[in-house]
Structure formats: structure tokens, C-alpha cells
Design a protein around this nucleic acid. Structure first.
Lengths: 286, 286
DNA sequence: ACCAGGTATAGGAATGCCCTATGGATGTGC
DNA sequence: GCACATCCATAGGGCATTCCTATACCTGGT
């Protein structure tokens, strides 16, 4: 009886899926799969029913769950037993706009978990802070940079817009197109520059700051815009995203931190960034 | 944080010694030693003070102990959660005399632990039974034999007896020596045979059945006897044990069980015998 | 002075875990 | 209707952890 299997069981139980549990535990799916099979073998009873949409616990699985939680948490408590809580480390983190609330909260959650009693304060990236989550283009020379995410940008069009019938859109086709302008945004500035150089007109219908409002206005047919190609944006039915030909707008987002005298409490954040970046790199090549 | 380390910690705590814990856990001493060091490293505090006579728990060790017990027992409970108790398997075990109460109870304890809900009945080896713990010489042809222990026999003398000043005793020196005769005992019968063949007299002061009483009478100076060379007998200060020259009396004790239709519930007992026999074999060569 | 009993360390073998790759089954979108 | 995506299970190789033996070191007892 291994506590590792129990933790995997807990994750699978709470996720309702072996694959999701694997993502949550940062291991590959077969690890959870075989561990659960071994646990069922060891206990002599099936714990889950497998089906296409995931798994549902059997009655035995439901009986095991609270006990497994108990053991797992007791073990964690032992780990903290002699861990004299250090005074909270204040960390001021500057966050640029348009980071993607979902992935950013996941990152912060993990950071707080891994860090040792952090007191996180989120501020604008221009303010004084210990580190900044920003696009690579905004680095200043005294800063080091740890990449986290790679965002490529797409032209966002309302559903049914003529340009949306094409797989890609050329720069010339943007001439005179009404735009929802998001500000500040390096990608939009690049677009403005490109339009200007090509002698194309740029018609701005609205200026605003958040991606969410931008998408709402795009969906309402007020105009087009430029948004990062995040899965949850690409999945929206009311907005269609198309790459702009010959205008590969990318942005690398990461942690910028002072090259000298960086706070040691940043280490887990940098490690998380390294992991996410490596993960994306693997996905890109595979 | 691994439950393995916690179990080692529990064994060390309860044994008061790393070496004893290793024996109890059936692992080598360095395994416990390094596991404890790792646990202390992990928790960031020493758990034991090491000294020449063993170890004593620190205050932190004492705090950890009940929690470790809790987790360990909860985990065991999970292991038994879906283990529908099978109906008790009755096993009649025939036990010859003079097996050595200590090692025999250890063996039975382990057997009951490993077996699946056994109902053990101990009887004399002549009675009907599923298996017998006997000397190899008492095997009948329909039985298989799994050796467990190898006993060699010594002449037991009261402390200060003239013969005890010698490292060994010759057969001739036993002529006319008063004896405490233990019965039944294959070794004593071999001795009687040897004395008889050499034409030596044998003077019997008492006849009895148990080794404990025998040793009491030997210590009281009533006479000599022949006893197995077990560590706890050799360690007695009131009795001195000497090998008899040219008379290597040995006995192999083990499990005798029917060659056909042996109860499957005997398997753990045979496994235990195999382990003990291998262990002794290693000790003899090393 | 040597031996016995205790713990710590070093190095090699084996067991087990994790990962990648792949197969099978079943909904989903065009 | 057919390709595709998702999810779980299985196979095989690489690697980390654990175990063991052998040995060093220390101290108390003979």
C-alpha cells in the first residue's frame, strides 16, 4: 500500500478523469492508469467505472475516498510538523494586461503553493515591484527574463463576416476595416505600424483595455480586433479568429526580474515558468 | 514524505535501536540508518540521539511518533478495507518438546500475521495434525520436510564445575557423571548410545521433560545434562555449556507436512521456515 | 589490548516508476 | 459517412530509488 497510489486516486476521484488527474499531478496519463489498476488489484475491488467521458467512482471508490484524503492530509501535516513558519515574504508582482485570467490564476495558485509563506501583491508593471510578468519587448536592460508563454495573435472577426470565410487574411484586405483598438498592446502597435507602412487606412471605432470587452464588441459586429490565439478564445462560437498573412505577430510573455539582488522567493515562480515553457516547447515540436 | 520511512521510524522508536529495527523489519541495518537520516533531513530536525547503546528519541521524535503511528495504522486499515474476512482456517500444529519458547513464539506470531485468518491449535506431534514441528529424525515417509533451525547440543554443567574449566569435554570424562535426563530427546538418546558403546557408566539423578527445569537442576549442582546451544542458554551465568569431543550432536528442526494434500494455509509457515533456514545458512558462512 | 555491539558510509545490483509510443473504443464536426 | 479528437490500457526503454554487502569508526566491557 503506497501513499503515491492514494494521491493519484484522490486526484482521479476529484477530476473525474484519469487524464485530468495526470495533468493535475504533472505526470503522464499511463502513470495514473497503472497506479489505479494496481491499487484496485491490491484492494481486491474496482474503484472506478471507466467510460468514454472519463471515470465515475464505484461504491467502493466512494468509501475509499475520505480515508485516502485523511491519510494524505495527515502525511502532509507531518511534513509541516517541524516547519517553523517563516515570516511571510512580501512579493510585489507587476502584471501586464491581457495575460489570460485563467492561465494566470493557475500560475499564481501554483506559485503560492510552492512558495514558502508568500504575501503576494499584484500591481501594474510600471510600479515598483520585485518581478514583472510582461511581454519580452518591454524588458529593460537591468532585467533578466524567464519565458513562460508564447502567444501568437489573430484577427478577430464577428461570426459571418465576409473575411472570416477565408482561412487567412491579407494585410491589404484590412484597409478601412473598422477596428476595436486595445491599448496598451504591443501586438496592436505592430499592426498599426504595418498598416501605416503599407499606406492603408485604419479606422478605430473604439478604444479599450480588456480583451473580454474587446471580444464582446467584435461579436456585436462593431469591428475587428487583434487577440491572442488562446484556446478559450478560439473556441468561442461568436468570434472567428484568422491569421494575418505576412504579419506573424507573436509575443513571448515571461517573468522579468532584476538581474542582481533578485528575491530568492522568486525561485519557484521562475521554476514554474521554466516548466510551462518546456511543456509548450514539447507540444510545439510533437 | 514516504510512509516507508515512517514505518522504519516507528520500528526504531519502539526498538530503541536501529539494528533491532532492521531485524524487526527484515532489512539490513543501513536501510534504516539512511532512511532515518533522510527523514530527519526532510523534516529539518533530528529525531534521535545516537549513542553506543542504541538511540533515544529527541523531543521532536516523541512528537512525531503518535502521528506516524496514526498514518501507518490508517494505511493498514485501508489495506483491510475491502478484505472480506474469509472463514477462519483451522490448522492443527504438532509441536515437539524443547523447541525454544522464544523463537517458537516468534515463529507462530509471524505465521499468524502472514496467514489469512488462521485458527491455530497446538497439539503433541503424535496426534493427528496438519503439520508438525519436529526434528528431522522423526520424519515419516509420507511427509515432506522444510528445515527451520539447526541445533547443536552442549554439555550443561553447573558454574564452577571442574569440567567447565576445559574448553571441551571428552566422552571418557563423562564416566559416572551424574545426569539430569531429559525425555523424550533424540540428542540424549544419542548420548546414551555413545556412552553405552564406550562402556561408560551413566548415572541418572532425575528424569524430566522441560529444558527450563533441567537447567534449574543443573545450576543447582544436581548434575549435568545435554541442552541445545541456544544463545539465551549460552548466556546464562549459572550454567556453563561445553561441546563434547568427538560427539557432534546436531538436530535439524523443521516443518513436517503431508507430501500430498497439504493445506494451502501452511504456505506462509513453510515460507517462514525457508527464510529462517536461509538466514541461518548465511550467518554460518559469514 | 582486543572484542562486541552500535551507527554511518561507499559502491554495485535490482526493483519499480515514469515516459513515449501505440492500440482500441466512442462521441463530434464537416 | 468519415476523419478527428478524446479517453483509457498496454508495451518497452531509461532512470531513480532502494536494497544489500563490506567497511570504517566509536565506545564499553573483558
Amino acid at each position: 500500500m503506497d501513499v503515491r497510489s492514494l494521491r493519484y486516486f484522490i486526484a482521479a476521484y476529484e477530476s473525474g478523469s484519469i487524464s485530468a488527474a495526470a495533468r493535475r499531478c504533472h505526470v503522464a496519463q499511463p502513470s495514473i492508469s497503472t497506479a489505479l489498476l494496481q491499487l484496485e488489484e491490491r484492494l481486491g475491488t474496482p474503484l472506478f467505472e471507466r467510460h468514454r467521458r472519463g471515470i465515475t467512482p464505484t461504491e467502493e471508490g466512494q468509501r475509499l475516498y475520505p480515508l485516502a484524503r485523511q491519510v494524505s492530509e495527515d502525511l502532509d501535516a507531518i511534513g509541516r510538523l517541524f516547519h517553523t513558519p517563516s515570516p511571510p515574504t512580501p512579493i510585489r508582482l507587476g502584471l501586464m494586461r491581457s495575460l489570460g485570467a485563467h492561465r494566470m490564476t493557475d500560475l499564481l495558485k501554483e506559485y503560492i503553493n510552492r512558495g514558502d509563506n508568500l504575501a503576494l501583491t499584484l500591481v501594474n508593471p510600471e510600479e515598483r515591484c520585485d518581478a514583472r510578468i510582461i511581454g519580452e519587448q518591454d524588458l529593460v536592460t537591468t532585467e533578466c527574463f524567464q519565458p513562460i508563454w508564447h502567444d501568437s495573435y489573430r484577427l478577430a472577426l464577428p461570426e459571418g463576416h465576409p473575411l472570416a470565410s477565408q482561412a487567412t487574411v491579407s494585410l491589404n484586405e484590412l484597409d478601412g476595416l473598422p477596428f476595436i483598438w486595445r491599448h496598451p498592446c504591443a501586438a496592436m502597435e505592430q499592426l498599426a505600424l504595418a498598416l501605416n507602412e503599407a499606406g492603408l487606412r485604419c479606422q478605430v471605432r473604439a478604444r479599450l483595455r480588456t480583451i473580454e470587452y474587446t471580444l464582446g464588441l467584435v461579436a456585436a459586429g462593431v469591428g475587428a480586433s487583434l487577440v491572442p490565439a488562446w484556446p478559450d478564445i478560439l473556441a468561442r462560437p461568436d468570434v472567428q479568429c484568422r491569421p494575418v498573412e505576412g504579419l506573424p505577430i507573436h509575443q513571448i510573455i515571461g517573468v522579468a526580474y532584476p538581474a542582481r539582488h533578485a528575491s530568492p522567493a522568486l525561485a519557484p515562480l521562475l521554476a514554474l515558468g521554466r516548466e510551462a515553457w518546456a511543456q509548450a516547447g514539447l507540444g510545439a515540436t510533437g
